[in-house]
């Protein structure tokens, strides 16, 4: 199963980006293999509907779960529609590697 974590940078030492629609990067995690891939969020500088466009990317990637700090109402309803689970992490400044470890249980 694939999970997306919103990240401030493009490697596992980056921190969790609390803004879903305007996060810098998406970290795509394959939960079985533990492999990660980072893609830039093309919506981050969009003047409007950033949440919807970011949700579009998530859906295109075929992930089942998204981890971020906050989801806007439009992103929420679109992700809901495709049965994608949203996980809100309140702990700011967490390193992506730690978030991954807590998911994969390492």
């Amino acid at each position: 199963m694939k999970t997306i974590i919103t990240a401030n940078g493009s490697d596992v030492n980056a921190t969790l980006d609390p803004r879903f629609g305007r996060c810098e990067f998406f970290c795509i995690l394959d939960e079985e293999t533990g492999e990660t891939e980072f893609i830039e969020n093309k919506a981050k500088l969009q003047s409007s509907a950033a949440g919807t466009t970011a949700a579009e990317t998530v859906i295109e990637q075929g992930v089942k779960k998204v981890i971020s700090g906050d989801f806007g109402p439009k992103a929420k309803s679109l992700l809901d529609r495709f049965g994608i689970q949203m996980v809100i992490l309140k702990d700011e400044g967490q390193i992506i590697a730690n978030v991954i470890n807590s998911i994969t249980g390492k």
């Binding site: 609390p18 803004r19 305007r22 003047s47 409007s48 700090g69 906050d70 700011e92």
Partner: peptide, 20 residues
């Protein structure tokens, strides 16, 4: 135009400061 987007920008910045 775009007063709504300017409001969103101002609020996002405030949230960022509040968080950090």
């Amino acid at each position: 135009e775009n007063s709504g987007k300017l409001v969103t920008t101002v609020r996002e910045k405030a949230r960022e400061i509040a968080r950090s």
